[in-house]
């Protein structure tokens, strides 16, 4: 890691029997939000889990700012369904020397969360917002978020985007998030890393990312090109009616 990055991933490789994550490299600059896109099974979660220390890579290095203060959220993972949010928070905060109760209370209020509720009483969206509130309340330089906006209504998604923008606004913090929702990339990502079949297809700042694929697809410099278009062009499979057994 250098002063110019909060995360440097170099040649990350992980081999499974059916899948290989190969030679993944990218960096995240302070004060930026990086979106990681790719279809299901492309390797996004394996990359995030490797950075989080949950998966042991076969090769490669990862240098992360403040490794003793990690902030990782795996979307749609439900912890302790029978427990109250307040109980989980009380237990969690004791592990973070930089826990900021004021900030945590602010996020609870902003997201309209009642920490006296049990986890099982929350909707998917409320649960993700609670996990984000915890993740963002101990001043971690880098947030690593797996599908943080999946299953969330547009209003809540907008609230989360605002919070993300605020989190990196001081130029000292960054966010790395994976998503399938391309409108999130358009709305908040400063840079994008496209993962395809276990490898980085392209990683760049958002304008450069779009320009790259315009050139790749033989489009003019001003031609409209959305992230959906890019994904569909790269990943789309066309069904062959004649090949389907009757």
């Amino acid at each position: 890691m250098t002063n110019d990055s909060l995360l440097t991933v170099s040649h990350l490789t992980k081999r499974y029997s059916q899948f290989t994550l190969q030679d993944v490299s990218f960096t995240i600059a302070p004060g930026t939000i990086m979106g990681m896109i790719g279809v299901n099974g492309a390797g996004k979660s394996t990359i995030l889990k490797s950075i989080a220390g949950l998966v042991q890579p076969d090769a490669g290095t990862m240098q992360i700012a403040a490794p003793a203060n990690p902030a990782v959220m795996l979307g749609e993972t439900v912890y302790y369904p029978e427990k109250k949010l307040a109980t989980i928070t009380r237990t969690t905060r004791q592990f973070y020397s930089q826990w900021d109760e004021e900030q945590y209370r602010y996020y609870l209020h902003f997201f309209d969360l009642d920490d006296q509720k049990k986890v099982k009483e929350l909707s998917t969206g409320m649960l993700i917002k609670y996990q984000l509130a915890v993740t963002m309340s101990h001043h971690a330089p880098l947030l690593i978020l797996d599908e943080p906006t999946s299953g969330i209504d547009p209003v809540s998604r907008d609230a989360i985007r605002q919070v993300f923008r605020h989190y990196v606004a001081d130029g000292q913090h960054s966010i790395l998030f994976s998503t399938h929702i391309t409108t999130d990339l358009e709305a908040i990502a400063d840079s994008i890393t496209y993962i395809h079949a276990g490898a980085v297809l392209y990683s760049a700042a958002k304008p450069d990312f779009i320009d790259h694929f315009r050139r790749q697809f033989g489009l003019s410099a001003n031609a409209p090109l959305t992230f959906d278009d890019i994904m569909l062009t790269i990943e789309r499979k066309t069904i062959d009616d004649s090949a389907i057994p009757a």
Binding site: L54, P70, L74, T77, P81, T92, F95, Y96
Partner: peptide
């Protein structure tokens, strides 16, 4: 309860 995953994501890791 996904306790193992929750704990592994704390600063003390696995």
């Amino acid at each position: 309860t996904n306790d193992i995953l929750y704990t592994a994501l704390l600063p003390t890791g696995k």
